[in-house]
Nucleic acid binder design. Structure first.
Lengths: 338, 338
DNA sequence: CTCAAAAAGGAAAACGTTTTCCTTAGTAGC
DNA sequence: GCTACTAAGGAAAACGTTTTCCTTTTTGAG
């Protein structure tokens, strides 16, 4: 911490130092400054470049976003539309995305759509008005403006949940394969009374996890009867787990192996079991996401581990890529010893 | 879901509909359109206003942010600089803030400073370049540019952690009072072997909680000896709790009452206790924040409840207010029965 | 009826960039 | 000594707003 008095070194910039100021200081035109800033080749001698660079440093110049955006017809803003920011896995993705975007020179605008098509539309329109140069949908929901954006060929990246209108860039894990792996592990572990609790299948991620789990069981010749499955469209996954395990247990006793399509569902399950004073350790519970807090708050939970910290870079890569590729990241299956 | 064909109602706008288009359609000048949009009084007849409004609706016009920002010298972007977005309580504040900002017509830019002064400076400069009209600091750290912003009188709101340079708008709870309440409750509960585990006191929030707790005990004539206190600057609060309870127990046995300055610290404590197979229910543990997930994942934890969902509106109010007022929100003390 | 003030609204400047034209001076190939 | 071509760089337009002037018309007070 240096004393407030001796800050006469280069703290002059104060507020808005424009390209014109830099040009004047370097003794060149604003066009040249702009070209140096954007490293346009063959438009300035090395000497000029150095002079401009020096002026930029001395004045602490940094291009005003609005000017550039207005001229180019697009800003450096990337909008991230999350369906529910209170969900820890969303927050993890948002955090990783922010870091990756920032180091790629973008600025993240974060919006919470609460899984509401109307609100999503509002945000999409607003971001268009802000000249956002990219849209990241963390759990997209079908909506009119989204369809519009898709068909207009805007720069969209769908994360975890696929484009409800098909196609488009996608970043996520292989949910179906993960579901199947869970099935295999539970069966090999010797569980004979399996159950499944899942959230809304309007999410392609959830739907794939469920389908993969069922397919995995089918491949092993294991049957999953209907009263061993609970699904709900409720947004609060904790609630789903709590209610789901109650229902399942009520109509056929405690299972000995359980797949929950999210960690939160598993937390809800555990809560009910503890309230019932059930023999919790007799049940193998597998969640999905594997929150970094799990080793601390849920050491009893196995989980498909989604590499959220790697999502950021993947999303930036997807945004930058020209073709509509899907980026499938590798998941893991974390088994926690009792 | 309506069929893709019959969308000829008013889906024409496609991409960029500018103020000029609206003006043309309404048969007025762009100046008039602008004035109607910003409801400048005495500049348009009711009839004109209606005509413009109709044109706006029909074309789906919405002012381009960059144009307005450039002209006015400030955008509608509000930057939220969070010290650690993976902390659930930060995420909760961010979510509430986003909603409140949005409904007040602002757009939230979320940045994760990782509690790093250099990164915070980078963000502050970048946001200045983006003409951000407000800065919300969720856990500010002392840094050169921040000092600059403070003395330049920029629109700053400090949340939870106070301005390291003094003054400024502040939103938070009365941490000292809350700490004292915890002390009182623990003593009244009959605990005689108290302990305290806290994070970095560089955060004014933590410092106040600790000071309040100590003052509360002192007022009751209870002494808190040094080997019953553990503090650490480590960022990971889970780790602090885990290590803290180990140290404290090692140098004086298990406490029967414990105050942790964050929920996460308490989670870490619980983990260690369970690993040691300690009689966990013999200890009254009080956390701070009271995450909405606590009833589910930590029903054993008492906690000072911070009304994070109310932070959003308070922050917007603070941003809008002319004078540098502090907004102190009411906290609670949630006691969970065993 | 006169005059001032208010209402209504248009033309154009300004904001800070990027980029399209230009112009000039070298330079390589013949 | 030409002719092309490239390097180097400036002037000015353009992006979409808001706002300052300015003009014309209407209103109200005397």
């Amino acid at each position: 911490m240096n004393k407030p008095d001796e800050h006469a070194d280069q703290e002059a910039p104060q507020h808005t130092v424009s390209i014109a100021a830099v040009a004047k200081r370097a003794g060149v035109s604003i066009a040249t400054v702009s070209r140096v800033m954007n490293s346009v080749s063959n438009k300035a001698s090395q000497e000029t470049i150095d002079r401009v660079r020096r002026a930029v440093l001395e004045l602490g110049y940094r291009p005003v976003g609005a000017g550039r955006a207005l001229r180019q017809g697009k800003s450096r803003l990337v909008a991230v539309l999350a369906s529910n920011m209170l969900n820890p896995s969303m927050a993890a993705i948002a955090a990783a995305t922010e870091t990756a975007l920032r180091s790629a020179g973008y600025v993240m605008v974060l919006c919470d759509t609460h899984d509401d098509p109307k609100l999503q539309d509002e945000y999409l329109l607003e971001m268009r008005a802000q000249y956002a140069c990219g849209l990241v949908l963390l759990g997209a929901v079908a909506s009119d403006v989204l369809r519009d954006c898709v068909s207009a060929g805007e720069s969209l990246v769908f994360v975890n949940r696929r484009n409800p209108y098909g196609g488009g860039r996608f970043v996520g894990v292989n949910n179906a394969a993960a579901g199947a792996e869970v099935a295999t592990w539970l069966v090999q572990k010797g569980c004979s009374n399996l159950a499944l609790i899942h959230g809304s299948v309007a999410s392609s991620a959830t739907a794939d996890r469920v389908a993969g789990f069922r397919a995995g069981l089918a491949a092993l010749g294991v049957e999953l009867v209907n009263n061993r499955v609970f699904g709900s469209n409720v947004l609060d996954h904790l609630q789903i787990g709590y209610e789901g395990i109650a229902r399942i247990t009520g109509s056929g006793g405690l299972p000995d192996g359980l797949f929950c399509t999210s960690d939160l569902i598993a937390y809800g399950v555990r809560r009910w079991l503890e309230e019932q004073r059930a023999e919790v350790n007799a049940i193998e519970i597998v969640g999905f996401d594997d929150s970094p807090m799990n080793p601390w708050i849920a050491p009893w939970l196995h989980a498909v581990q989604v590499p959220y910290s790697k999502y950021g870079n993947a999303i930036v890569r997807a945004l930058a890529s020209k073709d509509e590729q899907s980026i499938i990241l590798e998941h893991g299956l974390v088994i926690r010893p009792r």
